[in-house]
């Protein structure tokens, strides 16, 4: 496998609900592109901050205060960051999104078969794109790493 691109992205909780695009050039017709994507931390471990976020949300949405007692809320801790990944091909456009909760994933695109969540696509020369979507960033900081390789 040949490494094609590598991206290190730092985000904060204020980046929640944003998309971050990274483009890269593919100069050969590989049989497969492999995206090694990860982020850390996955969880907000601070118990008091978790409780504060949950209680604030319960209040904001107008659920009764006894919707979930503290004992039940504690079961939801740690709360989790969630980032999803979308890929665009220069030929076929939007190929799909990986909406899984695992913070480390290997995503593969090829003409024969792509990873679940993506349509198969020929690896053509040109400008490709990967989008990191900040579905929920609850911790103060998150580091994202993307390594794109061709095979």
């Amino acid at each position: 496998m040949e490494e094609i691109a590598r991206f290190d992205i730092h985000v904060t909780s204020s980046d929640t609900k944003t998309h971050i695009n990274r483009s890269f050039e593919v100069n050969k017709e590989y049989s497969k592109l492999v995206f090694d994507v990860s982020y850390s931390p996955k969880y907000l471990e601070d118990v008091s901050k978790c409780m504060q976020l949950m209680k604030q949300r319960i209040k904001d949405v107008g659920f009764e205060e006894d919707f979930l007692p503290d004992k039940e809320l504690a079961k939801a801790i740690p709360l989790a960051n969630h980032i999803s990944w979308s890929i665009d091909s220069p030929k076929d456009g939007y190929l799909g999104t990986k909406h899984k909760h695992n913070p480390h994933q290997i995503l593969e695109i090829s003409e024969e078969k792509s990873s679940f969540g993506f349509m198969p696509a020929k690896i053509v020369k040109g400008t490709w794109n990967i989008t990191s979507s900040m579905n929920a960033i609850l911790t103060d900081d998150v580091d994202i790493h993307i390594i794109v390789s061709g095979e």
């Binding site: 609900k17 978790c50 949950m54 949300r57 319960i58 949405v61 919707f67 709360l79 929920a136 609850l138």
Partner: peptide
């Protein structure tokens, strides 16, 4: 539409 949403699930409200 009225699920509690973030931080319990990423904006499902």
């Amino acid at each position: 539409p009225k699920r509690i949403g973030t931080p319990f699930c990423s904006e499902c409200r």
